[in-house]
Design a protein around this nucleic acid. Sequence first.
DNA 1: GCCAACGTTGGC
DNA 2: GCCAACGTTGGC
Length: 153
Amino acid sequence: MAYWLFKSEPASFSIDDLAARPGQTEPWDGVRNFQARNFMRAMAPGDLAFFYHSSCSVPGIVGEVGICRAAYPDFTAWDPANHHHDPRASASNPIWSMVDVVLRARYPRPVTLAQLKACPALSGMRLLARGNRLSVLPVTEEEWHTIRALAHR
DNA sequence: GCCAACGTTGGC
DNA sequence: GCCAACGTTGGC
């Protein structure tokens, strides 16, 4: 059982898009960064992840998803019509991976980036590390519970 | 729109 | 293997 964080730009894909299909699993595809891919390969069904909105007016954690399928080939990589097409990828050499997620919680109010930064218990969080740009990140169990408490207060 | 930080690419 | 150039991310 491990904890993670997924970033998404709400203009492209927001938690409301997930919430519009209740109970349905959603492939988390399009990740084209090796470190982020490797984190997804380390995920197992039952793991939990925060859903983070980036590049928007109020960046922050807006809910939780559950991992419901372990990493498998991201076939969007070898679809020439796909926005995240990678000409090096193919069915025999997938290169990229994705997992399936399902919405678990949508917070009534987001835990904003400003709140995260202001919380001393989260000072070591990878999300807050200088220059961090990874779209998939691990979260420690302590961080997970701290942030949940912020979400539910 | 700006800019810092970072990953990737490609020449050498 | 080094490193400059480039593209991207993401907060502000």
